[in-house]
Design a binder for these strands. Structure first.
Lengths: 336, 336
DNA sequence: TTCAACGAGCGAATCGATTCGACGATACGT
DNA sequence: ACGTATCGTCGAATCGATTCGCTCGTTGAA
């Protein structure tokens, strides 16, 4: 079912079939009809590899996701879903690369084999070798999240610093004087994971600004760690009345710890953070949180990438979102 | 950076470079060394499109996922992650196709453009047009889940019928005499979604076998619906003391409904079902459930697919798993 | 010494689609 | 009536890698 077969059956040359399909040169209505009839009959679709080879583009985007070993958070999942969705709307396919380490075969394949027209990268660290690799590979790319030096690259991100600060202010307004930040894992922090560091900045600054007591903790991204983490917090800082967190994955465990301590949210302890909207709504009690607009961010990432592919030399663009905090049921006045 | 450039710089012909890389014909150590030096210097990787065109295979698998509009359940996410992981281990890339309706452009692209060597399909309905499309497209494929007529295709699935029956027996053993099944959405049931139908079969048979009272309900795949669903259940069937469910997504809502009714699990009501392991463990209280081995299933699906690609005419193979039920904290003796 | 076998490398064909230049044929302006 | 656009179509080159057939030396056995 190649173009030659179609041409033979329709009694025209291969180039005429191609022009009839692309419309890049005029073709008589009658000829077009005959070609279309043959195509409808035997169900022809141009071979993707041949087209990619000739045109020099693949109509495919690469999406680099965290390795499958670690579970994706709802937020990450939201990005993946919306990127795939947005790409499908533009008639583009998405190639997935689960890439963790820096010597990842899948990652290297994607960026050296001319397999994709552009790449979207998530889970960005402040100093990220993958970003550097992409930069000198010359392949257009957009990141969801941004590095410490954000000016050279295209990215989309939420303003963690501000969001966390707003959580602190919200809690301060409710009368809380002693707050804890439950951050992402110590490993992520050590490797310079952006959101983890920005959370600290936002927390520390806001706490200082309001003259509050603040303690920061790291916690592995899993419920069990959340439980342990809360127990430690309870142990060492019993005066804390409100917890701010960017660690979605640990929250169920934190809540379990809270219950086991015989406490009730928000009566005895307030809880606020940054999370995907669905996640915050499904939490019990519903979580007061900055709802990260994953759908919008994924779509914007694809848009930026398409712009960049079309005009690789245009100045880079960024998108820093600051969604409002949705007040739900997990925060309340400080207990007396 | 094409093979011709390498050949020129190494002072050999293009074919020699190709043979040096593939090893399909002997090449002098010295020549090979010179070629490798050039490659290392300018960083050459063979163009994927050209190779696919010549070889007739793309080293890429297609993975068809539910459309992004609906959130993926933890179980579905588990499949995606493990398929991608298993494919990466075999040095294969994965192309994602979010395909809902039957006239989906992304789906059609994947199976007609020679874009992939094989396809993995999830969320299978008893009568599934996509399976039919794939069958007469001639493209090798494996499904996660199976149709009403399972003999013609390769698939991997869990034995929902048996698992649900086991849940019923477990609850019957605990003394429960009146059970409810909270199924997936009415739409899914109407479109013939396999697990939803098999859940009914397993539930009805086991309930009959043990002489219990059983009521079946459908419930949209979201927490809010779970809450409503539980209220209705409470209203119309106040005698029910145990709920069996295959609807992961609705469970948080069901639990919310239970709490609002002032009940405590498992003291007043037992809860059991089928879910991804992490999900069951993170639930509060931890859920007694058949843990669907998503990692193993995804890996098996890839294995089966690779076999099928290598030998398209070999007899089809199936894999029907029946993981044990993990007893956790959500089931207990019937209240008196 | 001669001839077969083999090792190492080269040239050309091939995969399927796109695209450029060219070539009749028709229409049009002068 | 003649030159010139314009239309519709064709043939051939091209993208980059693989692979088949062939050649030229060298080696080893007869």
């Amino acid at each position: 079912m190649n173009i030659g077969e179609i041409a033979r059956r329709a009694g025209v040359s291969r180039s005429t079939v191609s022009y009839a399909l692309s419309g890049k040169r005029p073709v008589t209505a009658e000829t077009r009809r005959r070609i279309q009839a043959v195509i409808d009959e035997i169900g022809y679709r141009p071979n993707a590899a041949a087209r990619a080879l000739k045109e020099g583009r693949t109509r495919t985007l690469g999406l680099v996701i965290p390795p499958a070993g670690q579970r994706l958070t709802d937020m990450q999942l939201g990005f993946v879903a919306s990127v795939v969705e947005a790409a499908a709307r533009a008639d583009l396919d998405v190639l997935l690369s689960p890439s963790g380490g820096d010597h990842d075969r899948s990652f290297e394949r994607i960026l050296t084999g001319s397999r994709v027209d552009g790449v979207i990268l998530m889970e960005i660290r402040l100093e990220d070798e993958r970003v550097a690799r992409l930069q000198d590979s010359g392949l257009p790319f957009v990141t969801i999240g941004h590095t410490a030096n954000p000016h050279g690259t295209c990215w989309v991100d939420v303003d963690y610093t501000t969001l966390i600060a707003r959580c602190v202010h919200h809690l301060a307004d409710l009368g809380h004087r002693s707050l804890a930040l439950v951050n992402r894992s110590a490993e992520l922090l050590a490797t310079g994971y952006g959101p983890a560091h920005r959370a600290i900045t936002g927390f520390t600054d806001a706490v200082a600004q309001r003259g509050l007591a603040g303690v920061g903790l790291t916690c592995a991204d899993e419920p069990a760690a959340g439980e342990t983490c809360f127990e430690q917090l309870r142990d060492r800082h019993p005066d804390v009345t409100a917890v701010v967190t960017v660690n979605e994955a640990a929250l169920p465990g934190i809540q379990r710890g809270i219950e086991r301590a015989g406490l009730v949210v928000p009566r005895d302890l307030s809880l606020a953070g940054v999370a995907a909207r669905h996640w915050a709504e499904d939490f019990r009690p519903q979580l007061t949180a900055a709802d990260v607009p994953t759908v919008e961010m994924g779509a914007s990432a694809v848009d930026l990438l398409l712009e960049r592919i079309a005009a690789p030399d245009a100045p880079v663009r960024h998108l820093l979102l600051t969604p409002p905090i949705s007040l739900r049921a997990s925060t309340g006045p400080v207990p007396r």
